[in-house]
Write a protein that binds this DNA or RNA. Structure first.
Length: 552
RNA sequence: GCCCCCGUAGCUCAGCGGAUAGAGCAGCUGCCUUCUAAGCAGUUGGCCGCAGGUUCGAAUCCUGCCGGGGGCGCCA
């Protein structure tokens, strides 16, 4: 019996009680009843607070209401016991047989266990990182690489149609500074004060000159453009290979330039004009974002006739919507939180619902500590720790997992020494170890010629088996919730809890026969449970983009 | 000046309207004569920043204050 089925049973019990005239619900029977797993095992396998929630509306004391539901629930097949407890909780214990069936459902569902359709029919665009192609990605970007990708995977698992998108900021003055810096290096001159000073600039210059020695003979302006474009090409390829190594794959790499070249900026402005929130003032073109709560209006076209960065943003948003995305998620760092108000207002100016069509989760920046000292990240000074360097030191799995197990809006301090140590300090090893252990049992079973065979679910009645089954049953709800709130860390925390529940089961419940003992039904039933557990851990790790090793 | 995020165990952090507030690490004590001890069991450790309010019930929601971090004033 899954929590979902139980939730429906409670709802049906409510409906039946209303029909029988035992209770009255002026607000009607709720569509969905919340079923939780109580912390305290004495409170049964599942609990619900419906009686307390509906007591006022029903005009009945919570405990009394609970009693009226309890006697109906006791008749439900698969429900073993129902207690009314505390202020009016319904504590429900599920029959071992009904609960054991869950192992079969999970094994049969295999890789699709955990998928739901709670977001089916929704097209979601998740944009993250979106760095300038003027340098390597560094640890400041890496959190979004891990969280953004995991968020996309989780939302996808809830049935949404998802695109991961990287907006390439390949236009504007930073690109010129980038070109100027490379050219200066190539010519053996000093990089301007406000240019890029990292060692990679010299490497780019060397690579470009080696590939095109004649570049240095070009007139200064052509040479600058050539260095800028060659540098752009190489640096973008470098970013893409960094992300590839980090197992973060984008569906769309969207160049800001193409917005301008294809006339989409003008088109975006047309859309806004039609909505009536654009006006001229002081020789500039403005968007009246204050109509929708922004603290001031925003310039689209400056007095000198050039577009602002915000004009690109607007056109890009309109473009995304025209490509059919219902929800546009922008994962931004706290250093960009000032954009939230104007982006939301911009969406409203475009005629959209800012509470539905655009979401802007703000991620707190990652603080990095090494040898007890905070490291400052400065692309220009060239002292940053690149994504590649961190991946090399910590490994993709440990890094991705560590970054994903905290909510994005929570400040995070990464101790470089700690994450590079690859010891059990990192919970990823705990979870992966559970998977390796599970795989090992299944491997040994295969060697012994023991097959799953026919499951006898009622044999899985040990307390630790029961707890494990209950934990496995939570998985789809956890994924759906993580997707709804765009919080993949919930999956990581769930995996840690479930790994712990498994280790405790393993400690007490022998799965395979000992010595010459013949394989019995209990061994096969536990093997089903082991395969179900392995499936859940593997599926959960996959949602985080972390490997599920069969051996460690 | 205005705005955002965060103050929970020694440390890093979960929990965000429910029943005795949790995990990992750090500390102490046990457990490998058969499936991976990267594990398990036990134990130590908390005015959930402070003060009010909302209700059956607040670490969780609201207001104010204190402390820490970050941003904003036709810049990309």
């Amino acid at each position: 019996m899954t929590p979902e089925q139980l939730s429906n049973a409670v709802r049906d019990a409510l409906g039946a009680a209303v029909e029988a005239g035992e209770i009255t619900l002026p607000g009607g029977v709720p569509d969905h009843v919340l079923i939780e797993r109580p912390r305290n095992p004495e409170h049964g396998d599942y609990a619900t607070n419906v009686a307390m929630r509906l007591a006022k509306q029903a005009g009945t004391a919570p405990r009394e209401l609970a009693e009226r539901l309890a006697h109906r629930l006791r008749e439900v097949s698969g429900v073993e016991r129902v207690d009314v407890a505390g202020p009016g909780f319904l504590n429900i214990t599920v029959a071992a047989g009904a609960q054991g069936e869950l192992a079969r459902s999970i094994v049969v569902a295999a890789e699709s266990y955990g998928r739901t359709n709670t977001l089916a029919g929704t097209r979601v665009n998740v944009e993250f990182i979106s760095a300038n192609p003027t340098g390597p990605l560094h640890l400041g970007h890496v959190r979004w690489a891990a969280v953004g990708d995991a968020m996309a995977r989780v939302v996808e698992a809830a049935g949404a149609d998802v695109a991961r998108e990287f907006y390439i900021n390949d236009r504007g003055s930073q690109m010129d500074k980038f070109g100027t810096s490379i050219m200066a290096r190539a010519q053996g001159k000093d990089v301007p004060e406000d240019g890029y000073h990292g060692a990679y600039i010299a490497e780019l210059a060397r690579a470009i000159v080696a590939d095109r020695p004649e570049i240095l003979d070009l007139p200064e302006d052509e040479q600058l453009a050539a260095f800028r474009e060659e540098g752009y090409r190489l640096q973008l390829a470098e970013q893409q290979s960094q992300l590839d190594e980090f197992r973060t794959h984008f569906d769309v790499w969207f160049s800001e330039r193409t917005l301008h070249e294809s006339g989409q900026v003008e088109h975006g402005l047309d859309v806004l004009r039609k909505q009536g929130h654009v006006f001229d003032a002081d020789g500039a073109l403005w968007m009246r974002t204050t109509d929708f709560g922004d603290d001031k209006d925003r310039v689209l076209i400056k007095q000198d006739g050039t577009y602002t960065y915000f004009a690109s943003d607007t056109a890009y948003y309109v473009n995304k919507r025209e490509r059919g995305f219902d929800v546009c998620v922008y994962l931004l760092g706290a250093d960009h939180h000032g954009y939230v108000g104007r982006l939301k207002a911009m969406a409203a100016c475009a005629g959209d619902d800012p509470d539905r069509n655009i979401e802007i989760p703000i991620g707190q920046l990652v603080k990095i500590v090494r040898d007890g000292q905070e490291m400052r990240l400065s692309k220009r000074a060239g002292t940053m720790l690149t994504l590649g360097e961190v991946v090399e030191a910590a490994g993709v799995d440990a890094l991705r997992y560590t970054l994903c197990r905290y909510p994005a809006d929570s400040p995070l301090t990464l101790d470089v020494n700690q994450i590079t140590r690859q010891t059990s300090d990192n919970p990823v090893f705990y979870v992966q170890y559970a998977h390796a252990r599970l795989s090992s049992i299944l491997r040994n079973a295969a060697e012994l010629g023991i097959e799953l065979g026919e499951l006898q679910p009622e044999l899985l009645n040990h307390e630790r088996e029961s707890l494990l089954l209950a934990a496995l049953g939570e998985f789809p709800r956890i994924v759906a919730t993580a997707a709804e709130y765009r919080q993949p860390h919930r999956v990581a925390r769930y995996l840690e809890d479930t790994a712990s529940t498994f280790h405790r089961f393993y400690d007490v419940c022998r799965v395979l026969p000992m010595g010459d003992e013949p394989a019995a039904d209990i061994h096969r039933a536990r093997l089903w449970l082991v395969e179900a557990t392995r499936t859940v851990i593997a599926n959960g790790l996959r949602l985080l983009g972390v490997a599920a090793p069969e051996r460690m």
